[in-house]
């Protein structure tokens, strides 16, 4: 009874903070937090354009970019170009990824294969693949072949290295167990070695996806007759900055989609892994 005021006053700030905490949690669950920063940037950007701090030929307003995107979508040019770029990216990923995976597997399992090829591959890895563009244009012209080659070369190394690393790091005790329990080499590969290397292979895939888009952007910007990069370069000729900015945003969106896909694959195939459980 001696301190009635203090006991009454204490709960108030706590309740407020509790409420704020609840709101925070709810926002986080809906995913608002992930997107709050991009939205804020967008608002600031639009405000700068509206009040005349940014002129149209330096950076168009978000509304103008959205309008340009809408027009492109209506004309059908958007879908056609995105589709072309997507096909190039996938073809390059599949070809380069498959070769990288094959080499990684072979070199992880066989010492002979590793001795024959690893040194060469490690040397080739240190050449930035984009430095080959002049040569590639001489070889393939500006056809599909050039872009396919560059993308395939770019994705090859992360997939090769991570597949090799994954196989090398398999617990030898598990392999010994598999052998002593009578698994044939094929079964051992299917039940022990491949699943054991998979987390590492998927890390390689995520790296590869990043390199895939980067390579494609550069290749399409330098020499192409279709695709998102071509769309952007053509717009530059006519000072259509809204289309240029829109193209860049598409790349960002496609990169996000690719990353989300890789995450989804990780989540479904690595459910056994405590680190991916959630």
């Amino acid at each position: 009874m001696s301190t009635p005021t203090s006991t009454l006053a204490a709960p108030r700030p706590r309740r407020v903070s509790l409420l704020a905490g609840k709101l925070f949690k709810k926002l986080r669950r809906v995913g608002v937090l992930n997107w709050s920063l991009p939205i804020l940037l967008l608002v600031v950007w639009q405000a700068c354009s509206s009040f005349g701090y940014l002129t149209n030929n330096i950076l168009p307003s978000p509304a103008a970019v959205a309008l340009a995107g809408w027009k492109l979508a209506l004309s059908g040019a958007l879908v056609a170009n995105v589709w072309v770029s997507f096909l190039r990216a996938m073809a390059g990923l599949i070809i380069g990824g498959a070769i990288g995976f094959a080499f990684g597997f072979a070199n992880g399992l066989s010492d002979l294969s590793e001795k024959l090829t690893d040194t060469t591959l490690q040397m080739a890895r240190n050449i930035p693949h984009l430095a080959l563009i002049p040569l590639v244009i001489l070889w393939f012209g500006i056809d599909e072949g050039a872009k396919l080659f560059l993308v395939a070369l770019g994705v090859f190394f992360p997939i090769y290295l991570n597949t090799l690393h994954g196989i090398r790091n398999i617990d030898p005790q598990l392999v010994e167990m598999g052998r002593s329990y009578g698994l044939t080499p094929r079964e051992l590969l299917r039940r022990v070695i491949f699943p054991g290397a998979l987390p590492s292979i998927l890390v390689g895939l995520r790296y590869a996806l990043g390199i895939m888009w980067l390579t494609l952007i550069v290749a399409e910007t330098i020499a192409a007759q279709s695709g998102i990069g071509y769309m952007a370069m053509q717009a530059r000729e006519f000072m259509q900055t809204d289309i240029v900015v829109f193209s860049i945003l598409i790349y960002a969106a496609l990169g996000k989609v690719a990353d989300a896909t890789a995450r989804l694959i990780e989540k479904t195939t690595l459910a056994w892994h405590p680190a991916y459980k959630r």
Binding site: L174, Y181, G182, L183, R186, E187, R191, P195, G196
Partner: peptide, 29 residues
Amino acid sequence: HSLVRVMFQEPRLLPWARVMANVEIGLGA
């Protein structure tokens, strides 16, 4: 029947296989 089986110091279960699939390994290929 298999002739010889070993039970190791460590369980050596495959972490990526459920308990059922792990036991199935014992049947060999």
